[in-house]
Amino acid sequence: MSIISLNTLKRDFLVGGEYVHALRGVSFDIDEGEFVSIMGTSGSGKSTLLNILGCLDTPTSGDYIIDGVNVKERTKKELATLRNRKIGFVFQNYNLLPRTSALENVELPLMYNKKFSAKERRERAAEALIAVGLQDRMEHTSAQLSGGQQQRVAIARAIVNDPVIILADEATGNLDTRTSYEIMSLFQSLHDKGKTIAFVTHEPDISEFTTRVVKLRDGLVVDDHPVTPKSATDALAALPKAEDYAQ
């Protein structure tokens, strides 16, 4: 079953009086439980695609349906609610609130959902932090956490609202190889638990850990094929011990 369905998606920007066609007609579906990497060089349109997938932007033409909801012609307010209920974001530079505990950072998406009481928020956030292996770091502020740990907090924040899809934007871009593999291993374990993940990256070795690669070039899909994922845990074990400075 398709969680995400893109049909001849186009997105034009007006820059200095001329239209720039960032997306020229992109069509593909993402099924529930897929771990898709979206690849492309800068200028390929992958950021624009990610913005649309994340309901931060709306397409100029074509349809984007997420979990049965057509995003086209939604108001800003409706888009905000869609992001809050259906999407979990993981950014390259973590984007945690400074001087705020891990727990409170993870609670943040639930703060914008009236359904959750303070107690439920806390419980859900604690569960999410346990799921990313940070049960001992709940009260630490971002300054007291390493890069990898900060990204784990960000991942916990992305899964706390139980989204239909997790969107990761170069989520390993700021991390060294070992920590990158640890994060990929975490994503793989989330995938194993049935989460749908779209992972935007320009690093081919990172895309090897996913189940499908979609390549963009000049605003069009040029390649879309399934892959047999490498295990990030194995890759981690294969790394030389000398690089083990993260411990």
């Binding site: 931060l56 905000a80 992001r83 809050n84 209920r85 998406p109 914008y112 959902n113 924040r157």
Partner: peptide
């Protein structure tokens, strides 16, 4: 960030 995670 707040907007991305659903703040109106």
């Amino acid at each position: 960030l707040r907007m991305a995670i659903g703040a109106q």
